[in-house]
Each structure stands twice: as C-alpha cells, then as structure tokens.
C-alpha cells in the first residue's frame, strides 16, 4: 500500500511536470489563438475541445501545467526561505528575537490569507505572481512553526549539547546539525504545501485574484467555463487540478513513508 501511494503520487505529479515540459517546446495549437470553432467537440484535432473563444483546451491545459508548477514552487519557496530560518533561529533559543518573531508570526497567522491576496491583487494587479506571493506569505507561519518545533527536538539531543560545550558557533550548529536533521520533515511539509498552494491558487482564480484570461491557468479555465451549457470545459480543468493536488500530496506521503516509516502519517 505504501508503495502504491508513492507510485500514484509519482504518476500524478509526473503527468503535470511532463505536460509542463512538453508545452515548453510543443503544444497541439497556439494556446492563445482564437478560432471560429466555439465549444468544439472533443474530437480530433481538438481532442479536448475548444472554449468559448475557440481556443484549444488541450493546449491551454498543457501550458496551464507550467503555471500550476510555478505557483507551487514560488509559494513554497517564499514560505520555506523565510519561515525555516526564522523557525530554526527561534528554536535555537534566541529569546528576545524569538519572542518578537513568534508574535510577528502570530499576527501573520491571524491575517486571513485571502486578505493578503486581495490587497496584493488590488495594489499590484492580479497575476499568478501576486497570487503565489500571497499564498507563500500566508504559509510562512506553517514552516516557521514546523521548523521551530523540530529544531527544539533536535536541540535536546546529546550531540548538540556536546557541540555547544565544545564551543562550536551557533551558525555552524544550525547548518551542520539542525538543518540536515529537520530537512526530511520540511520536505514532506513542502510537498503538502505545494499541493495546497495549487488548490489555493485555483480558489483565488475563481475570485478573479489570479492570472488574467490571456494566461492559461487551470483555475481560470474553471472559472470561465459555463458549467451548465458546456460542462466538459469545466470538468477538464477540474480533473487536472484534482490530479495535480492529489499527485503532490501522495508524493509527499509516499516519500515520507519511504524515508521514515516511523513518522506520523500526517503532514
């Protein structure tokens, strides 16, 4: 069963990555070219049909995979690059700084992510980047808390005490001992946050707080679809989102089980 999780995860996320990579060099049609064929049926050459403007759905889906990956990478990178150092710092016992950071993280955590997205979109224009940044910022506390908690566990180990006694600089302890030890957990968190970011972006797209229509994204395709007259044009990007989110979720779970079966089966 554990292997199955990993395999399904690999297939799901692999499909997304593959679609994104192929779309860099080839798509069946120009994804932003309008044609006279509105709501073309799901037949050759438009195998997934066309949308209201006559743009090829399959091509847009493939290019949309790029955006999907971009959202995940950007959001997780922001959250991890800011959250993890802060968490490790606090976890290693910087008292005053730690207290201030903890309170800052509290405020950030209490600020609804949606608000950040609305504000960023209103201030800088709604785009995939602003949506990803908002999701990333909102995810900082998750990484910060995770890193802090696991750092605390690591810090109580004997070899850390030994290093401290022998006068090893704090920064060296952080890089040599703490980070490598908490890395697997953070990796699992990253995979989970990756899929959550994809889902969050779809939600923001539905509210009009992400990519403009000219940029093919799955969330946007779903939002613009007419569910009642052309259900397939909604179902196709919907399924794509489910596959991607599930893929990365299961990938994270699978890798974690593979690395350390003792770890809890929860993110």
């Amino acid at each position: 069963m554990k292997k199955l999780t990993l395999v399904i995860g690999l297939i799901g996320s692999g499909l997304v990555v593959l679609a994104a990579l192929v779309s860099l060099v080839w798509t069946p049609f120009d994804p932003s070219k309008v044609s006279g064929i509105r709501y073309g049926s799901l037949t050759w050459p438009h195998i997934l049909g066309t949308d209201a403007l006559g743009m090829d759905t399959a091509s847009r889906l493939m290019v949309g995979a790029q955006t999907t990956l971009l959202v995940g990478i950007l959001a997780v990178a922001i959250a991890a690059l800011i959250g993890v150092p802060l968490g490790v710092f606090v976890g290693m016992g910087h008292k005053t700084l730690g207290e201030i950071l903890a309170r800052g993280s509290d405020i950030l955590y209490a600020l609804p992510a949606l608000l950040l997205a609305i504000l960023l979109a209103s201030a800088l224009g709604s785009s995939v980047t602003t949506a990803s940044i908002a999701i990333g910022i909102a995810t900082i506390p998750v990484f910060q808390r995770m890193a802090r908690a696991s750092t605390l566990t690591v810090m109580s180990q004997d070899y850390i005490l030994a290093a401290q006694v022998s006068g090893t600089p704090t920064s060296v302890i952080a890089l040599r001992h703490v980070l490598p030890n908490i890395a697997p957990l953070l990796g699992v968190q990253a995979a989970a946050s990756f899929s959550m970011a994809i889902l969050a972006e779809a939600g923001l797209a539905y509210l009009g707080l992400s990519a403009p229509k000219t940029v093919p994204t799955w969330g946007r395709m779903l939002r613009d679809a007419n569910f009642l007259t052309q259900p397939m044009q909604a179902v196709i990007p919907g399924i794509a989102i489910v596959i991607a989110v599930m893929g990365f979720n299961l990938l994270g779970d699978g890798v974690r089980d593979y690395l350390d079966p003792r770890l809890q089966e929860v993110r």
């Binding site: 889902l199 779809a202 539905y206 919907g238 489910v242 596959i243």
Partner: peptide
Amino acid sequence: SHVGLAMPVFFLGVLLTM
C-alpha cells in the same frame, strides 16, 4: 478522502448545485 481533499471547493459547490 484524497480526492475530496484535492477538489477545489467552488468546483464541488457548483457541481452539487447542478
């Protein structure tokens, strides 16, 4: 449960409405 978790909430909402 994994599928449910991966489902965009508005997508599900519109499907249920339909």
